[in-house]
Design a protein around this nucleic acid. Structure first.
Length: 451
RNA sequence: GGAGAGGUGGCAGAGUGGUCGAAUGUACCUGACUCGAAAUCAGGCGUGAGCGCAAGUUCACCGUGGGUUCGAAUCCCACCCUCUCCGCCA
């Protein structure tokens, strides 16, 4: 969420900066809402103040045993108008809030202006793609002919965009996650955390997945299965009870990334300034509906409804966040380097960045079978955008609480890393060499074979 | 799933319809005393929002959401969460 003070001060400037990322900010609507909010809020508070004063006066008079009927008659007449004002004010505030919740973050000044991924800027490249003296196969062919990757089984059990892995490949998948966790905790100073995979709507709002991107999420109902039936039964038994709100269906959401539960650790918290930076790493499955990506990456493990990821999250002081973005990205790069996987680092342009991000680097790994680089990590600085939604703050001494900055990045997507290893380390005989760095986590196995 | 207890400021803990945003203790900050520290004494010390150049001032917040009332931390309803016991269970 953007700073409403900034919008009040200069909505036109904000609109311009948002235009750079292809978002049309409705300045007129904002100003209309804001103007009405201002007058209604002032009038509401005046009415409340009047009522409070008179009510206190009644209290005082009763304490002295005086007659209060005159004052009570006066205050009784105030109720209706005040009620209306309060109702209107909360409507307006809800409207303004909904409006603001749908506005994306402002791009950082260092972000190139552009419409889509074609305007992204290559920052650096690491490693040289291997040349193969045999026909290169993709990870699906390699995995299936090893007998260790089974999409048909996954389709039977669940459906498309799921995977079954077996044997050495399943172990490689586990080894990758363990390896990443160990590197980030032992060498990069992150604290490992284990978190829920189902979260509530407040958490999703905190990191920005809600309210705009609900269709990308898996929503899991629980509790009352049929609230309308339950409500009808209640009304039949008790009659309409105005003091009770209707029964509502409850639900959780499956996390699309560990960013959600981990970043929300700081929701509604005020930490001491000395506690920053906080650096967390978590290995979790991620669940994405992939609505709207029908027909894209349908083959293989690139785009799945369920995949594992090791996620890096940092909470830092505002002045440190851009340095933190560089180091967090470097932490993710370390994994690729240790695994000997060629990659390039892209600075996303304004139009290609995610909703909540002020600046994003994508790491793209070389995939020989696709003869191209594919995203394997995305590292972003959200500045105060998430912190403001979450009320995640820090405080120096007796000072005022201040919003902190949040960052996160994949370190790395485990499934895609597995794909990259299969394709980059494939051999002519159909086997796959296990990268040197991974062998301690593979019990010393140096090669995946059919045997 | 059954029975019971409870959710108040960083923590502890009063408050059961009225000058209560909330006693008191403790922690913390500032000052005094001290060579310095401890102890002691004095003052300060929640969050969000509005208006205002500012000083300041107004509103909201006692698990959450409704309701009753001129007035709710306090009464009523629902929900959430925590704890104890029983049952079941990965």
């Amino acid at each position: 969420m953007l700073d409403i003070q900034l919008l009040r001060k200069d909505a036109v400037l904000v609109a311009e900066r948002l235009a750079a990322r292809g978002f049309a900010f409705d300045t007129a609507r904002f100003e209309t809402l804001e103007a009405e909010r201002k007058t209604i809020q002032t009038r509401t508070q005046e009415a409340q103040s009047r009522r409070n004063t008179l009510s206190k006066q009644i209290g005082m008079m009763k304490g002295k045993g005086e007659d209060t009927t005159a004052v009570m008659a006066e205050v009784a007449g105030l109720g209706d108008e005040q009620k209306q004002l309060e109702t209107r004010l909360s409507e307006l505030q809800a409207e303004l809030n909904d409006f603001l919740m749908g506005v994306p973050n402002l791009p950082h000044e260092s972000v190139a202006v552009g419409k889509d991924e074609t305007a992204n800027v290559e920052v650096s490249r690491w490693g040289t793609p291997k040349t193969f003296d045999f026909p290169v196969r993709d990870h699906v062919d390699i995995g299936e002919s090893l007998g260790q990757l089974d999409f048909e089984a996954a389709v039977k059990i669940t459906g498309s965009r799921f995977t079954v892995m077996k044997g050495g490949l399943a172990r490689l998948h586990r080894a990758l996650a363990q390896f990443m966790l160990d590197v980030h905790t032992a060498e990069h100073g992150y604290t490992e955390v284990y978190v829920p995979y189902l979260v509530n709507a407040d958490s999703m709002r905190g990191t920005g997945q809600l309210p705009k991107f609900e269709e990308d999420l898996f929503k899991v109902p629980f509790g009352l299965e049929d609230p309308s039936a339950a409500e009808q039964a209640r009304i039949a038994a008790v009659g309409v009870d105005s003091s009770r709100e209707p029964v509502r269906q409850k639900h959780f959401y499956l996390i699309p990334t560990a960013e959600v539960p981990v970043t929300n650790l700081l929701r509604d918290e005020i930490v001491a300034a000395e506690a920053l930076p906080l650096k967390f790493v978590a290995h979790t499955p991620c669940f994405r509906s992939e609505a709207g990506s029908y027909g894209r990456d349908t083959r293989g493990m690139i785009r799945q409804h369920q995949f594992d990821k090791v996620e890096l999250v940092q909470m830092v002081k505002p002045e440190d966040s851009y340095a933190a973005l560089e180091s967090l990205t470097a932490n993710a790069e370390t994994i690729l380097q240790k695994l000997g996987l060629p990659y390039r680092k892209m600075a996303l342009c304004s139009g290609d960045m995610g909703f909540s991000s002020a600046k994003t680097y994508d790491l793209e790994v070389w995939l020989p079978a696709q003869n191209t680089y594919r995203e394997i990590s995305s590292c972003s600085n959200f500045e105060t955008f998430q912190a403001r939604r979450m009320q995640a703050r820090f405080k120096t001494g007796q000072g005022k609480p201040e919003l902190l900055h949040t960052l996160n990045g994949s370190g790395l997507a485990v499934g895609r890393t597995l794909v990259a290893i299969l394709e980059n380390y494939q051999n002519a005989d159909g086997s796959v060499t296990v990268p040197e760095a991974l062998r301690p986590w593979m019990g010393g196995i140096d090669r995946l074979t059919t045997a």
